[in-house]
Nucleic acid binder design. Structure first.
Length: 908
RNA sequence: GGGCGGCUAGCUCAGCUGGUUAGAGCACUUGCUUGACAUGCAAGAGGUCACUGGUUCGAGUCCAGUGUCGCCCACCA
């Protein structure tokens, strides 16, 4: 046992403890300090790798806390618990951040070139990496740092190549020209998920296209068809005008040609059922290369699809004077020119939804590009099967509906990115256009179609979407594609904990790729955390400036407090607001626990040496308060186990907060103080009381350890240990619930109620708190023994002296003075003797008691009436379960008794 | 246009498969330097559980609908 400093200073506690864990090698399931039972199944959490783009925010801290909680719990239960940490290279996000840094230096991606840019990135990532790993340690992550992985390390690179080649060979990866979401700011395509639909007020312009006179072959100056568009610059790419086949207004025009201005191209008017006759003019310009619907229409009608925008979203290749202009400058110029020609028929404000880049917020341009895609439909079917069959469970369950919906109508996944920071696509093209895909690190030896030598092949310049390597994470981290021992032991993993906001981005992809590549679902349970919001309910974001740095919170209140705070408020899938008061509450709780332990350690009976080995409380000397404490601890253990099994971690903290603060500290310690100081008791009895406190506190420290690992570890070190205990709490055993003692629980609860009643009466009568008052009580025979055992404690806690017990109510009433205050506490009745005072305060105290008792009587009568009504209802007594009816009868009897006593008292 | 979620004390939230008097923290009121803790102790006040209907002996809890706030998905120029 070691002595505790008087004041709780988290910083001193936490740093030293983490070092001890590291030194003891307890984080790795196969570490030297592990106490795992090899016969139990392993428990695996692969950490969702945070982006290496900077530093951790509060959301990361929360998620790390939840993951670490599960891992520590499993570890204490004896499982080989693996918490595998990692970092994500975050391709586009990292490039976005680095590009910002470069811009401030007057450089850019283009000015550096690919090679120097990647060197620069490697240096940047090196700095953020150490910051982030340090933050994880501060939070207390009991991660196996020896197994740390990075999505850009060699193992991941190989996994990516092998995975892609396998998908390619299985015809699940293919290359084609298709319409993709192009971000001009990031200069890359992005997946559908990265396009944020943004409501905006735009303009809907009406433009007249001139029909071609079939006779002359020239545009007819008077015959026009008016189309509506929100993007006039796309006129340059138009290859048709579509109308609804049943639209009588245009029935005669289908099949005729119209002249597209500026490009002076003659294109057909086509009939297309998807056209909404009620929208705009009912005639739609068709731009197959720059609109998803139009592209499909183009394919159906065999239209050409000229691309008129370059990578930077300037107009290009239209063969007009607009080439080289930015898309919006071109729009302006085109509108002005249409106006000049007299073909701008009108314009009006238009509420619309524009796709913007999640990263750069640029307006996304749909463009035709040749890209790699993952065929998702067959993969999604397997993922759906995994959840439908229950092999993988999503928590909270309601997200399964969202999951179903998304995977059911899934579109193929565009996985190539025109970026540099990431895994290069292992595809090579020969001059004849043949494709060779290989997982070999050195690339192919020759074209797999025409056998041209490698020297003539050119590798695809593109890289993979960052989520492709993330999608392999649960198994690439364990050694896949090799059949490693880790893979065999720890895969499939136990729980995937992550935010619901990346259910599709990440969880779905891991599931699809995992099932395809490993043949098994990558995790049994998906636990979706809610998001942390600021006190106003706003999403935390750097741009809003409302992010809370977890290190600041840890410096101020400790990692234990931060962990308690974020777990306390957590319900799976529900967001939580995080503010300073939440953190303060948690810090206060830690402080309370610290002081309670300090008291217990300091209350050790003198005849026990300070290195005494742990003993169980001696059953022969247990008093009711000790039995009550032990029983409560058992009840708490059972409840905590149930909550843990439900993944209801917020409930775990609530249970422990209640048990420790209200149960153990407020009553357990207060009752024990009296016994520990009672000279009339023998040593064995006092020791038993102390050992009870140690036993119960030990249980609570174990139960709380997964939530607040540092302080519990530090406090546990000050308690006597069993010979079978390890050095450190982190690898000690999770408590098994002991026997309950319902009699002791009920009886001590009754006496606690009595103390509360007396205190209440004193407070209402405005008695000085320090004053001792004579109290007479009558307790039922069944409670007599317990009352006697706790009499000294009741006396002290209620400041009742002398505390006399009367045998009957009549005796009690006879002993009571005329001004004494009656207290009704369940089956116990008491009189608090008011000392004689001046005549004017006489009436006061009598009046106070009267009004208090009258209030109680009115309440009791109300409840009694309700109880009787219920029992009078024949359908209740016949239909409700017997236990409920019996409970109601007991309640009625109790209330009737209480009402009678109150009336009796009020008669005087 | 579909789907999901929140609506419980002044504020932030618990409330499991329906069962006696709906809880906690913060804030508030009144007292306390009580030999673990003022980061504390004691006592208190504060709620027609958004609304309407239904099921039931019994509804904060289940069902239907309404309102409101928020989120997700969705190819309408």
């Amino acid at each position: 046992m070691t002595d505790l400093p008087r004041a709780y200073t988290p910083r001193d506690v936490e740093g030293a403890i983490y070092e001890r864990w590291l030194a003891a090698d307890v984080f790795a399931p196969d570490g030297a300090g592990s106490t795992a039972d090899p016969d139990l199944p392993p428990f695996t959490i692969i950490q969702p790798p945070p982006n290496v783009t900077g530093s951790l925010h509060l959301g990361h801290a929360q998620r790390t806390a939840v993951e670490d909680l599960m891992v520590r719990h499993a570890r204490m239960r004896g499982h080989r618990a693996l918490f595998l940490p990692g970092l994500d290279h975050a391709s586009i996000a990292a490039q976005f951040v680095l590009d910002g840094i470069l811009a401030r230096e007057g450089e850019s991606r283009q000015s550096l070139g690919r090679e120097r840019y990647l060197e620069r990135m490697a240096a940047f990532v090196e700095t953020t990496r150490s910051v982030m790993l340090g933050q994880q340690r501060r939070v207390g992550a009991s991660a196996d740092w020896g197994r740390l992985r990075f999505t850009m390390d060699g193992g991941s690179a190989r996994a990516v190549r092998v995975a892609f080649e396998r998908l390619y060979r299985a015809d699940l990866a293919y290359r084609t020209e298709a319409l993709v979401n192009w971000c001009p700011g990031c200069r890359t395509s992005v997946s559908d998920l990265e396009v944020v639909p943004t409501p905006e007020t735009g303009t809907l312009w009406s433009v007249r296209y001139h029909l071609i006179d079939p006779a002359s072959g020239s545009p007819d100056p008077d015959a026009t068809i008016t189309v509506a568009t929100t993007r006039p610059e796309t006129i340059l790419g138009d290859t048709a005008v579509a109308v609804h086949p049943d639209d009588v207004r245009y029935a005669g025009l289908v099949g005729r040609l119209v002249r597209i201005p500026f490009v002076e191209r003659d294109v057909p008017v086509i009939a297309e059922a998807r056209v909404d006759r009620a929208f705009g003019t009912g005639a739609v310009k068709i731009t197959p290369a720059h609109d998803r619907d139009d592209h499909e229409t183009g394919l159906r009608h065999g239209l050409s699809a000229p691309t008129i925008l370059a990578d930077d979203a300037t107009v290009s290749g239209s063969g007009t004077a607009y080439d080289g202009l930015d898309r919006y400058a071109a729009r302006k110029a085109i509108l002005a020119d249409l106006e000049l020609r007299g073909d701008l028929a009108g314009s009006k404000d238009h509420e619309m939804v524009i796709g913007r880049c999640q990263r750069s917020h640029d307006v996304i341009e749909p463009r035709l590009k040749t890209q790699w895609f993952i065929r998702t439909t067959p993969l999604a079917a397997r993922a759906l099967d995994a959840t439908r069959s229950g092999r993988t469970r999503i928590l909270p369950e309601r997200f399964e509906k969202t999951w179903e919906h998304w995977l059911t109508d899934i579109r193929d996944w565009n996985v190539s990115r025109q970026l540099w920071w990431g895994h290069r696509i292992p595809a090579w093209y020969c001059p004849d256009g043949h494709v060779t895909v290989t997982a070999a690190e050195s690339g192919p030896a020759a074209c797999e179609v025409c056998a041209r030598p490698a020297a003539e092949l050119r590798q695809d310049p593109d890289i993979f979407d960052t989520w492709f390597s993330s999608g392999l994470w649960p198994f690439s981290t364990l050694g896949w594609p090799d059949q490693t021992a880790d893979l065999a032991t720890y895969y499939p993993t136990s729980v995937m904990e992550t935010g619901y906001d990346i259910l599709f981005f990440w969880v779905a992809r891991m599931m699809m790729l995992g099932l395809e590549l490993t043949g098994t679902e990558p995790f049994h349970t998906v636990y979706l955390s809610g998001l942390i919001r600021d006190p106003e309910g706003q999403k935390m974001s750097k741009s809003k400036g409302n992010v809370v740095d977890p290190l600041g919170a840890i410096d101020a209140s400790g990692a234990d407090a931060l962990r308690f705070a974020v777990i306390h408020g957590a319900t799976p899938g529900n967001d939580q607001r995080f503010g300073a008061t939440r953190l303060e509450h948690a810090r206060n709780f830690a402080n309370k626990l610290w002081n309670a332990t300090r008291f217990v350690a300091g209350a050790r009976p003198l005849n026990l040496s300070d290195d005494v080995e742990r003993r169980l409380p001696d059953v022969a000397h247990l008093g009711p308060a000790e039995r009550w404490l032990l029983s409560r601890a058992s009840a708490t253990t059972v409840a905590v186990d149930a909550a843990m099994a439900d993944h209801a971690f917020g409930e775990v903290t609530r249970l422990l907060h209640e048990a420790i603060w209200s149960g153990f500290c407020d009553w357990g310690l207060e009752l024990a103080k009296v016994r520990l100081a009672d000279p009339s008791l023998d040593d064995a009895t006092r020791e038993t009381t102390w050992w009870t406190l140690v036993e119960v506190l030990d249980t609570y420290l174990r139960l709380l350890h997964p939530v607040m690992p540092f302080i519990t570890e530090a406090l546990w070190a000050t308690l006597p240990h069993r010979a079978s205990d390890p050095e450190l709490l982190i690898v000690a055993r999770w408590p098994a619930p002991g026997a309950r003692d319902p009699v002791a629980e009920h009886q001590v609860d009754a006496l606690i109620e009595l103390i509360g009643g007396i205190r209440n009466a004193r407070a209402e009568a405005k008695v000085e708190p320090a004053r001792w008052l004579r109290v007479d009580v009558v307790v039922p025979i069944s409670l007599g023994h317990t009352f006697e055992a706790l009499r000294p404690a009741i006396s002290r806690l209620a400041r009742a002296r002398p505390l006399e017990r009367r045998l009957t109510r009549e005796g009690l009433a006879a002993a009571a003075g005329p001004r004494d205050l009656a207290v009704m506490a369940g089956e116990i009745q008491a009189f608090v003797a008011m000392a004689p005072a001046g005549p004017e305060s006489d009436d006061d105290s009598a009046g106070l008691e009267r009004s208090r008792l009258e209030r109680e009587l009115i309440e009791a009568e109300g409840w009694l009436a309700a109880a009787r009504d219920r029992l009078a209802n024949e359908s209740f007594t016949s239909r409700a379960p017997a236990a409920v009816v019996q409970g109601a009868r007991a309640r009625e009897a109790e209330l009737a008794d209480q009402v009678a006593r109150l009336r009796d008292r009020l008669k005087r």
